[in-house]
């Protein structure tokens, strides 16, 4: 799966407050052949959303963002971007909130690299 040719597919937006997390997740996705955009704060997220770039999937780590992150989730849905929320813990409230704002599902940290890669491949091949 690694070192495969880059897929001529839409980019993946990875957002979250922790740069080290973004770097690790981004590196894993790139190693799997995806194009990755990252956003470490609300401004960066807004900038990423303002560019007319084809984004297929957004992975949003809600840790590090305020409540206004839900609004951005809504706009992602409006753009037709698939959304997965990454939550720091297993929580009913976060689950409901995420699904209500357009998330396909919620991933709880720590993630397994292999699971994420399989999931992403599955979703973007749909």
């Amino acid at each position: 799966m690694r070192d495969g040719p880059p897929r001529p597919s839409p980019a993946i937006l990875v957002a979250g407050g922790n740069r080290r997390n973004l770097e690790l997740l981004g590196r894993s996705l790139e190693a799997d052949g995806w194009r990755v955009l990252t956003a470490a704060c609300m401004e960066e997220l807004d900038r990423a959303l303002s560019v007319p770039e084809e984004i297929g999937l957004a992975l949003v780590d809600i840790a590090g963002f305020g409540r206004d992150i839900w609004e951005r989730c809504e706009s992602l849905r409006a753009r037709g971007v698939m959304l997965l929320v990454i939550s720091p813990r297993r929580s009913q409230a976060i689950q409901q909130e995420s699904l209500a704002h357009g998330a396909r599902g919620v991933l709880v940290k720590p993630l397994s690299v292999r699971e994420v890669m399989t999931l992403v491949r599955g979703l973007l091949r749909e």
Binding site: N18, L25, I86, P110, S112, V113
Partner: peptide, 14 residues
Amino acid sequence: AEVETYDIFSPAEV
């Protein structure tokens, strides 16, 4: 000294 430590993956994976 790294201010930010990761929690997205388990240390085992990283």
